[in-house]
Amino acid sequence: MSVPIDVSDEVLSGEAVAIDVQPVGFLLRALGAAIDMIVGYAVFILWLFLRIWLLDAGVLDEATDRIATVAALVVSFVVLPITMEVALKGRSLGKLAVGGRIVRVDGGAAGFRHAFIRALLGVLEIYMTFGGLAVLTGAFNARSQRLGDLVAGTYSQRVRTPALPSHVPVLPPALAGWAQIADVARMPDRLARRISQFLVSAPRMLPDARARRPRAADRGDPVRLTGPARSARAGAHGHHGAAQRARATRAGERRPSDREAHGPSDRRLIIRRTAPDSGQ
Score class of each variant (00 low, 15 high):
Leu164Asp: 04
Arg233Thr: 08
Val24Glu: 01
Ile52Arg: 03
Glu15Leu: 04
Gly94Tyr: 11
Pro23Ser: 13
Asp221Leu: 02
Ala229Trp: 10
Phe140Trp: 10
Pro169Phe: 03
Pro4Tyr: 02
Ile45Phe: 06
Ala142Gly: 08
Phe130Leu: 15
Glu10Asp: 00
Thr161Pro: 05
Asp183Leu: 10
Asp65Val: 04
Ala87Ile: 07
Gly111Thr: 06
Glu85Gln: 13
Gly99Met: 11
Trp47Lys: 05
Arg194Ala: 11
Gly14Gln: 12
Ala174Gln: 04
Arg213Thr: 08
Ala234His: 03
Arg213Ser: 01
Ile52Thr: 10
Ser265Ile: 14
Pro207Tyr: 00
Val78Tyr: 01
Gly25Gln: 12
Asp65Cys: 01
Ala248Trp: 09
His240Lys: 12
Ser231Thr: 00
Val184Pro: 06
Gln244Ile: 10
Ala242Glu: 15
Gly252Ala: 14
Met128Cys: 08
Ala246Asp: 14
Ile195Ser: 00
Gln145Arg: 13
Pro162Ala: 12
Ala179Ser: 15
Leu124Ile: 15
Pro162Tyr: 04
Pro173Gly: 08
Ile45Pro: 00
Met84Arg: 05
Phe77Ile: 00
Pro276Glu: 06
Asp56Leu: 03
Gly32Tyr: 08
Gly94Thr: 15
Thr226Phe: 09
Phe116Ala: 12
Gly108Arg: 12
Leu121Asn: 09
Leu48Cys: 00
Val75Gly: 15
Gly32Gln: 04
Asp218Met: 06
Ile271Gln: 06
Leu12Tyr: 04
Thr64Ala: 14
Leu54Lys: 01
Met84Ala: 03
Met205Pro: 11
Arg210Tyr: 01
Ile19Trp: 08
Gly25Glu: 11
Ser2Arg: 05
Arg272His: 14
Met37Trp: 13
Gln22Ser: 14
Ala182Phe: 12
Phe77Tyr: 14
Arg247Phe: 12
Arg104His: 09
Ile5Val: 00
Ala232Leu: 08
Ala192Pro: 04
Ile117His: 01
Arg193Ile: 06
Arg230Val: 09
Ser278Pro: 03
Arg51Cys: 06
Arg245Tyr: 02
Pro256Ile: 10
Pro207Gly: 00
Ala134Arg: 01
Ala174Thr: 03
Ser144Phe: 15
Leu175Glu: 10
Ser166Arg: 03
Ala275Met: 15
Leu12Phe: 02
Asp20Leu: 13
Phe77Ser: 05
Asn141Tyr: 04
Ala217Pro: 07
Ala202Cys: 03
Leu54Phe: 06
Trp178Gln: 09
Leu55Gly: 02
Pro214Gly: 00
Ala68Met: 07
Arg250Met: 11
Phe112Pro: 05
Arg230Tyr: 10
Ala176Trp: 01
Pro188Tyr: 00
Val43Gly: 06
Ala30Gln: 14
Ala139Met: 11
Leu147Val: 02
Asp9Ser: 00
Asp9Phe: 03
Asp218Trp: 11
Asn141Asp: 04
Ala229His: 06
Leu191Glu: 09
Gln244Lys: 10
Arg224Gly: 05
Ala163Val: 15
Thr69Gln: 10
Pro256Val: 08
Leu27Lys: 02
Leu28Ser: 15
Gly241Lys: 07
Leu80Thr: 07
Arg230Phe: 11
Arg215Gly: 05
Met128Gly: 02
Gly132Arg: 12
Gly238Ala: 08
Gly94Cys: 10
Arg143Tyr: 08
Pro172Ile: 00
Ala30Lys: 10
Leu150Ser: 07
Val11Trp: 02
Ala30Glu: 09
Gly177Tyr: 07
Leu46Lys: 01
Ala115Arg: 12
Gly177Phe: 04
Leu175Asp: 12
Arg113Glu: 11
Val75Pro: 14
Thr161Ala: 08
Arg224Ala: 03
Gly131Tyr: 09
Asp218Thr: 04
